[in-house]
Nucleic acid binder design. Sequence first.
DNA 1: TAACATTATGTAATAATATAACATTACTTA
DNA 2: TAAGTAATGTTATATTATTACATAATGTTA
Lengths: 132, 132
Amino acid sequence: MLKQETLSKNQQIVLDYIEKVNEPIKAYSILHNVQKKGIKAPLQVYRALDKLVEIGKIHKIESRNAFVACKNSNCQISKATAFSICESCEEVSEISDSKLSKYLKNFQDKAGMKFNKYNLEFFGLCKKCSVK
Amino acid sequence: MLKQETLSKNQQIVLDYIEKVNEPIKAYSILHNVQKKGIKAPLQVYRALDKLVEIGKIHKIESRNAFVACKNSNCQISKATAFSICESCEEVSEISDSKLSKYLKNFQDKAGMKFNKYNLEFFGLCKKCSVK
DNA sequence: TAACATTATGTAATAATATAACATTACTTA
DNA sequence: TAAGTAATGTTATATTATTACATAATGTTA
Ligand SMILES: [Zn+2]
Ligand SMILES: [Zn+2]
Ligand SMILES: [Zn+2]
Ligand SMILES: [Zn+2]
């Protein structure tokens, strides 16, 4: 079965908002901002988030408990995500680097475990913050 | 100034427990298990965890909100962590691979951001779980 | 040793993040 | 249309983490 083409109502509302803000945003902040659209409870947000993560429209920044829209034009690589995070201003960018993703997809650990997914978060200072 | 050599009472209690269980463990589970040692409140645990993470004795598994003792004999690389996580049995291993860490330490993103830390989590099925 | 700064502790309250449980509705497709 | 799957609505609750404030222990320096 192919991936679904159309999002449900709540999924679309949540995605629209995440895409609009264009930076990592937390679940309860989403909730507060979509209440005017009729979404009333945390679970409605979390269910939409789960689905959107699953189909690669958004990603979760695990170290921040925040969600961000995928920038890789409907991420074919939702199972292979990498981000850079500025520890000063909290700016987050999705890294799109085919050499990096190739290297990590092919990485074999010593225990012989078969990976089907990874998430990588780099931390540092963005250009703006490093000159301050 | 050199890193502190000796841990405080609460830090030692929490570290001892994490090292004993030898698998990722959550903050409130730690709390329940060290109450007989006199630690009564979540904050006492979280403060010890913060410090232990900072000095590299333990690491946080971000995707699981759990903490695990460092296996790299007092991790000189607490700022460069990689784990494999079995999505079936939740077994977690710290990956110690100098080629990988060298590759990631030297990775330069297109925005020219200077990284001083990274965390990488691989997901898949461990050997035991993949034969089931 | 006295003064000061830093680190750690104790305690209570509360904030922030996420899920369980259950009833209902909409969508798909055979 | 009947059955199966996915999504929704709602309430309550579980889990994870921090704020705020008072105190004590430790380390540093004069
Ligand atoms: Zn993406
Ligand atoms: Zn910045
Ligand atoms: Zn380590
Ligand atoms: Zn396993």
